[in-house]
Lab assay of single mutants.
Amino acid sequence: MASQGTKRSYEQMETDGERQNATEIRASVGKMIDGIGRFYIQMCTELKLSDYEGRLIQNSLTIERMVLSAFDERRNKYLEEHPSAGKDPKKTGGPIYKRVDRKWMRELVLYDKEEIRRIWRQANNGDDATAGLTHMMIWHSNLNDTTYQRTRALVRTGMDPRMCSLMQGSTLPRRSGAAGAAVKGVGTMVMELIRMIKRGINDRNFWRGENGRKTRSAYERMCNILKGKFQTAAQRAMMDQVRESRNPGNAEIEDLIFLARSALILRGSVAHKSCLPACVYGPAVASGYDFEKEGYSLVGIDPFKLLQNSQVYSLIRPNENPAHKSQLVWMACNSAAFEDLRVLSFIRGTKVSPRGKLSTRGVQIASNENMDAMESSTLELRSRYWAIRTRSGGNTNQQRASAGQISVQPAFSVQRNLPFDKPTIMAAFTGNTEGRTSDMRAEIIRMMEGAKPEEMSFQGRGVFELSDERAANPIVPSFDMSNEGSYFFGDNAEEYDN
Results as ranks from 00 to 15, higher is better:
Met1Asn: 10
Met1Ala: 10
Lys7Val: 11
Tyr10His: 12
Tyr10Ile: 02
Glu14Thr: 05
Ile25Lys: 01
Arg26Glu: 04
Ala27Ser: 03
Ser28Gly: 01
Lys31Met: 13
Lys31Glu: 08
Asp34Phe: 00
Gly37Ser: 04
Gln42Ile: 05
Cys44Thr: 15
Lys48Arg: 06
Glu53Arg: 13
Arg55Leu: 08
Ile57His: 05
Asn59Asp: 07
Asn59His: 15
Thr62Trp: 06
Glu64Cys: 03
Arg65Ser: 04
Glu73Met: 12
Arg75Cys: 13
Asn76Ala: 01
Glu80Trp: 14
Glu81Val: 00
Pro83Glu: 02
Asp88Lys: 02
Lys91Arg: 00
Gly93Ala: 07
Gly94Ile: 10
Pro95Thr: 02
Pro95Leu: 14
Ile96Phe: 06
Lys98Asn: 06
Lys98Phe: 07
Arg99Gln: 03
Lys103Ile: 14
Asp112Pro: 05
Arg117Pro: 06
Arg117Cys: 02
Leu133Val: 09
His135Met: 10
Met136Trp: 07
His140Gly: 04
Ser141Tyr: 13
Tyr148Leu: 11
Arg152Val: 06
Leu154Val: 14
Arg156Met: 08
Arg156Asn: 07
Thr157Val: 14
Asp160Lys: 10
Asp160Arg: 09
Leu166Tyr: 10
Leu166Trp: 10
Arg175Met: 05
Ala179Gly: 04
Ala181Gly: 01
Ala182Pro: 04
Val183Phe: 02
Val183Pro: 03
Val186Glu: 00
Val186Ile: 02
Met189Tyr: 12
Met189Asn: 06
Glu192Trp: 14
Gly200Ile: 07
Phe206Gly: 12
Gly209Pro: 05
Gly209Gln: 05
Arg213Ile: 10
Thr215Ala: 14
Thr215Met: 12
Lys227Ser: 04
Lys229Tyr: 11
Arg236Cys: 12
Arg236His: 06
Glu244His: 10
Arg246His: 01
Asn247Leu: 06
Asp255Gly: 05
Ile257Pro: 09
Ile257Gly: 08
Phe258His: 10
Ala263Ile: 09
Leu264Phe: 15
Lys273Phe: 09
Ala278His: 09
Pro283Cys: 00
Ser287Pro: 10
Gly288Glu: 10
Gly288Leu: 10
Gly288Met: 10
Asp290His: 03
Asp290Cys: 06
Ser297Lys: 10
Leu298Asp: 10
Ile301Gly: 02
Asn309Ile: 00
Tyr313Cys: 14
Pro322Glu: 03
His324Glu: 10
Ser326Leu: 11
Gln327Asn: 08
Gln327Ile: 12
Leu328Phe: 04
Val329Ala: 06
Asn334Ala: 00
Asn334Arg: 10
Ala336Cys: 03
Ala336Trp: 10
Leu341Glu: 08
Thr350Gly: 09
Arg355Leu: 03
Gly356Ile: 08
Lys357Asp: 08
Gln364Ser: 15
Met371Cys: 06
Ala373Phe: 02
Ala373Gly: 01
Glu375Tyr: 10
Ser377Cys: 01
Glu380Tyr: 10
Tyr385Asn: 14
Ile388His: 10
Thr390Ser: 08
Gly394Lys: 03
Gln398Asp: 04
Gln398His: 15
Ser407Leu: 06
Ser407Tyr: 14
Val408Asn: 09
Pro410Met: 05
Ala411Lys: 06
Phe412His: 12
Gln415Asp: 02
Arg416Val: 05
Arg416Cys: 13
Asn417Glu: 05
Lys422Trp: 07
Pro423Met: 06
Thr424Leu: 03
Thr424Glu: 04
Ala428Glu: 06
Phe429Lys: 12
Thr430His: 15
Thr430Val: 13
Thr433Arg: 00
Thr433Gln: 01
Glu434Asp: 02
Ser438Trp: 04
Ala442Thr: 13
Ile445Pro: 02
Met447Arg: 09
Gly450Glu: 09
Met456Pro: 13
Gly462Phe: 14
Gly462Pro: 02
Val463His: 09
Ala472Lys: 09
Pro474Thr: 05
Asn483Ile: 15
Glu484Pro: 14
Phe489Ser: 13
Phe489Ile: 14
Asn492Glu: 12
Tyr496Gly: 00
